[in-house]
């Protein structure tokens, strides 16, 4: 919440406010970065084995000169 009384602030209050805002923005940035890493990691663990299996099947089909069979559920 940004108060509507900013005009009455002293330079020291402005500096303190800017410092707080900067530290909070930095924290939000770090949290967002951590969420990116988290979602990437979850995706890799959950889908990685399936992707690797499909790639191996595609490579095997290419070697045999046949079109790739549809993936089994």
């Amino acid at each position: 919440m940004i108060p509507d009384t900013t005009a009455s602030w002293t330079p020291a209050e402005r500096a303190a406010f800017a410092r707080r805002r900067q530290s909070r923005n930095l924290a939000i940035g770090l949290v967002l970065g951590a969420l990116v890493v988290l979602f990437f990691g979850i995706s890799m663990v959950k889908m990685g084995p399936g992707i690797a299996r499909n790639q191996a099947r595609a490579a095997a089909a290419a070697d045999a000169g046949k079109p790739m069979a549809p993936a089994q559920p």
Binding site: M1, P3, T6, W9, E13, A16, F17, R20, R21, R24
Partner: peptide, 12 residues
């Protein structure tokens, strides 16, 4: 007071 109205990460 107005300055403290903008919470820091430590407060969260």
């Amino acid at each position: 007071p107005p300055v403290t109205a903008f919470a820091e990460w430590r407060d969260y």
